[in-house]
C-alpha cells in the first residue's frame, strides 16, 4: 500500500512540479538534445510510476529469499492473503485493472500514432515520386510552386522537399544551411521523438504535463537541428534563409496567433549561444536515467529489505493463507 502511495505521489510531483521546472529551466535552449531526453524521461517516468503504483496494490511484495521455492511460496501466499480479505480483494483487483488500463491504452495509442504517421508519410512519398523531380545539384525533391517552402519526409526512404520558389530565393550558402538543418532532423530521427510525444497526448491528453512535453519537444527538435546545422554551416546563413523563407511566404492567420517560435530561433542564431559543458551534459543524462529508474527502485526496495505482507510477519510462520489473512484484517 505504501509503495503504491509513494509511486503515485512521485508521478504527481513529476507531472506538476517536474514539468513546470523543466519548462522554465534556462539550460534547455543551450542543450536541446539533452532537454528532449529529459522530457522523454519525465514522460516515461510518469507512466511507469502510475503503472507500477497500481501493480503494487495488486501484488503485495513478498520478501526476497535466497531459496527460490520459498520465494514462490511466500509470494503465492501473500497474494492469496491479499485476496482473502474483502477490502484487500477490491484493492488488488482495482490496482490490477488500473495498471492494465494505463498500459494497454499507452501501447495502443502509441501503435496508432506511429502507424498513422508512417502511413501518411508513405502515401505522401508515393505522390512525391510522380509529382516532384530531383534537383541535380543537391538531390532534394523539387516541387514546382512559387511559394517558398521547405520540409522533410522522414522514414526509411526519406526525402527533403523544396519548392522551386524556395530554391530560387535562397543563395548557395543559405541553401546549404537549410539542407543541413533538414538532414539533422532525419539523422537524429526527430520524427520518432515527435511521434512518441504525440502518442502520450493521444493516450492521456488530459494530463497537462504530456501536452507541455509535446509542445516542448516540437520546439526543441528545431533548436537541435539549428545547432547541428550551425556546426557545419554558418549560423547567420541559416538565420538569413529562415528570414528569406518567411518574408516570401503568404501570411497565415492561424500561425501568427501562436507567437513566433521562428523569431526566437532566428534571434538565437544571430546572437549565438554557449552550449552546455560536457560534464553538465553527462550529469543531465544521469539525472534523466535516474528519473526513469526511480519507480523501479521504489518497487524493488521493499522487496529487498522490508518484510512481506501479513503485517510484516514472515508468511512462512503461518500455516495457511487464511491465518495470514486474519492477521492482515486486524492490522489494516
Amino acid at each position: 500500500m505504501s509503495v503504491a502511495l509513494i509511486l503515485w505521489c512521485y508521478a504527481a510531483v513529476l507531472a506538476t512540479v517536474g514539468a513546470t521546472t523543466l519548462r522554465r529551466a534556462g539550460w534547455t535552449d543551450r542543450a536541446p538534445r539533452l532537454a528532449i531526453a529529459a522530457w522523454q524521461a519525465l514522460s516515461l517516468s510518469i507512466v511507469l510510476a502510475t503503472v507500477f503504483g497500481s501493480l503494487a496494490l495488486a501484488v503485495p511484495i513478498p520478501q526476497v529469499s535466497a531459496n527460490l521455492a520459498e520465494l514462490v511460496e511466500s509470494c503465492a501466499m501473500a497474494v492469496q492473503a491479499r485476496y482473502a480479505t474483502p477490502g484487500g480483494a477490491t484493492l488488488a483487483t482495482g490496482g490490477l485493472v488500473l495498471a492494465a488500463l494505463i498500459a494497454v491504452r499507452g501501447v495502443y495509442c502509441s501503435m496508432l500514432e506511429f502507424s498513422h504517421s508512417a502511413a501518411v508519410r508513405r502515401r505522401h512519398r508515393e505522390t512525391l515520386a510522380l509529382v516532384g523531380r530531383a534537383a541535380e545539384d543537391t538531390g532534394v525533391t523539387l516541387l514546382d510552386d512559387d511559394r517558398p517552402y521547405v520540409y522533410c519526409v522522414a522514414g526509411r526512404r526519406h526525402r527533403i522537399v523544396m519548392t522551386t520558389g524556395a530554391h530560387t530565393r535562397l543563395e548557395r550558402a543559405q541553401l546549404d544551411a537549410v539542407l543541413a538543418h533538414e538532414r539533422a532532423h532525419l539523422r537524429e530521427r526527430h520524427h520518432l521523438a515527435l511521434a512518441a510525444a504525440a502518442a502520450l497526448v493521444r493516450a492521456f491528453g488530459w494530463l497537462w504535463a504530456f501536452r507541455v512535453a509535446r509542445d516542448e519537444v516540437t520546439r526543441l527538435v528545431e533548436l537541435s537541428a539549428d545547432d547541428a546545422a550551425s556546426r557545419t554551416e554558418h549560423r547567420l546563413s541559416l538565420a538569413e534563409a529562415m528570414l528569406t523563407l518567411s518574408a516570401g511566404a503568404p501570411p497565415s492567420g492561424t500561425l501568427a496567433a501562436t507567437g513566433s517560435t521562428t523569431a526566437t530561433r532566428i534571434r538565437r542564431l544571430i546572437t549565438g549561444h554557449r552550449p552546455l559543458a560536457a560534464w553538465t551534459g553527462a550529469l543531465g543524462m544521469t539525472s534523466a536515467l535516474a528519473l526513469v529508474v526511480a519507480p523501479l527502485i521504489a518497487l524493488a526496495t521493499p522487496a529487498m529489505t522490508a518484510g512481506p505482507d501479513c503485517c510484516g510477519n514472515e508468511p512462512a510462520r503461518f500455516a495457511a493463507a487464511d491465518e495470514c489473512a486474519a492477521v492482515n484484517r486486524d492490522c489494516w
Binding site: H116, S117, A118, V120, R121, H124, P148, Y149, V150, Y151, C152, V153, A154, V178, H181, E182, H185, H190, H191, L194, A195, A198, V221, A225, A241, M242, L243, L245, S246, A247, A249, P251, S252, L255, A256, T258, S260, T261, T262, A263
Partner: peptide, 15 residues
C-alpha cells in the same frame, strides 16, 4: 505531425 518543416510564422514587423 508526420512532417518536419521550416515554419513561417513571422509578423511583418519581426521580419
Amino acid at each position: 505531425a508526420a512532417f518536419s518543416r521550416l515554419l513561417q510564422d513571422l509578423q511583418p514587423g519581426e521580419i
